[in-house]
Every structure is written in C-alpha cells, then in structure tokens.
Design a protein around this nucleic acid. Structure first.
Lengths: 136, 136
DNA sequence: AACAATTGCTGTTGCCCATAGCAATCCCGA
DNA sequence: TCGGGATTGCTATGGGCAACAGCAATTGTT
C-alpha cells in the first residue's frame, strides 16, 4: 500500500505520542493513576503548597478542568488542600500521596528509559531538544 | 517553580504533539476537516478502491470508529463507496474530494515545513527517525 | 456442508479538553 | 480608602477521539 503519511514528522509525532502514551497509561493504571494525575502529583511534590491555579497554568490545564481532577486526587487521599487566603488553596501531598508518588516515579523512570532505549543511539540525544523546540 | 517534567522525553513528546496538533487542526478546520479526515483522504487518494477495513488497519483505527468517520466523508461528498463483494466496499475520491485533498496537501505541507523550521538545525534531521522508532 | 474468519455496523463508555458563566475574594491606583 | 479590574475556584455543558462488547451478513477454507 502506498502511504504518504509516515514521511511527515507531524504525523510521526502524533503516532509516537499516541503509542507511548498508551504504554505509560497502562502502567500508571496499576496505581489507579492517569497521566495527568501523575503530572500533578509530581509537581505538587516538587512544589509543596503550590496553588491550584498556578498548577493549572503550568500544565496548561484550564481552571474548570482542574476541579474534578483535584477532587479525585483529594478524594483518593493523595493531596490536601489548605486555604492560603480567602480564595486560594495550597496543595500538598498526604502521607499516602508521597508513597504513591514514589511508585509513580519508578514507573515513569522505567518508562522513559525504555522509550529512549528504543530510539537509535545516533538520534537519541536529539529527541528532547527537538521536541522542546516544538512546545516550549 | 521547580518542574521535573520537561526533562522527560515522554512528557515533551506529549506536549509537543498536543501543541502541533492544535495548529494543524486549526488550519484544517478551514476546510471542514479534522486530522483523521485528512489522513483518510490522503490514503484514499494514494490507494484508490482501498477497503474500509484495510484503511482502518493501516491507520490503527478500530472498525467501529471508521463507521461514523467514513459516513461523514461520504455525506460531505468527498468519497464514494463502491461494493467490492458482499461485505467489502472500495473507497475512492469524488471530484470535489480530489479538489479538497489538493487544498489539504497545501495546508499539510506548509504545516510540516513550519514544524521542522522550529526545530534547531542540528536536531532537525534526527526528529523523524527518532519518532519513527517509537511507533513503527 | 460446516466452521472460522472477515467486514461493516450499533451502542456504549471513558478520557481529554474547550467554552460560558458565576460568586467570592484579592489587589492596585485614583 | 474605596471602587473597579483581575484572580480564584467552581458549575454546567458539549465535542472529539478512541476503546470495548456484541451482532448480522458474507466469505473462505477444509
């Protein structure tokens, strides 16, 4: 079959992102986590008392969509919300949240190494800089 | 803010794919097309009388999800479905489908060149091979 | 002729993300 | 100081994408 698509970097990007995302999602699902959840938890871990809105801005998640996300993480007992002032709330990991993030770290590290391992050595170091240029 | 995420190629891949997809989608929307539509039309153009199921297999789209997709393209008058045997149907571009694909080509080419242009020269040639290794 | 595989389809679900709008709170400049 | 604009968190809603289970009809193989 003739296929003009794979020559396009944009198409390859789409397919590669989808393929790798599926793998990471599958592994995180063992912890009851989605990818977004893991991103949020890692960021809360690195920035205790971070604001919900700051988190959303940083991850490019709309405020409206942060609500159910954070509610789920809170209901699961992984994060605490502490009022900072009348309208802002600081987010921190609970004890079980910290335990979970530890496991998430392990999964993510393994995933990322596996991902890089699949890239031929001569291209490997170029992947991150090239991708960064596309969104940063 | 401390942010451990951008160091991960997998995360950069996710963000880059999302960012670029948004741009392409916006341009294709001018033609009333989604990204999947364009993929399908390009493949039908390159492989006249291709089967719906073969198309789905090639694009990794489930048979079930091909149905509304093809119905939309047919309703828009861009593709024709011709029965091959009792259960298969061959897909071909209509006249207006061919015209549309021409415009889609132009948009995609411009998008891809713009995408590559944003990647620093020293990384540019490594992008496609690296991405290919992640899904092919 | 019988059975397995293929094809196209329905129905449903979940996830991700976008928009519009709202009440409460804050911050800053006149 | 105070008044208007910005910020924050939230509700409600919808669209796009893709997964699953299951079904009827047809094809192909043995």
């Amino acid at each position: 079959m003739r296929d003009p698509l794979p020559q396009y970097p944009g198409y390859a990007l789409r397919r590669a992102a989808h393929a790798t995302a599926a793998q990471l999602s599958a592994r995180l699902a063992d912890l009851g986590l989605k990818q977004v959840d893991a991103s949020v938890l890692l960021l809360v871990e690195a920035n205790p008392a971070i604001t919900a809105s700051a988190l959303g801005r940083h991850l490019d998640i709309q405020r409206a969509n942060m609500v159910p996300l954070l509610k789920r993480l809170e209901d699961a007992g992984w994060i605490d919300r502490t009022p900072i002032d009348g309208k802002s709330q600081g987010l921190t990991l609970t004890a079980s949240g910290k335990t979970l993030v530890g496991k998430a770290h392990a999964i993510i590290e393994e995933f990322e190494q596996n991902l890089l391992a699949r890239v031929p050595a001569e291209h490997r170091d170029h992947l991150l800089p090239a991708l960064d240029a596309l969104w940063r």
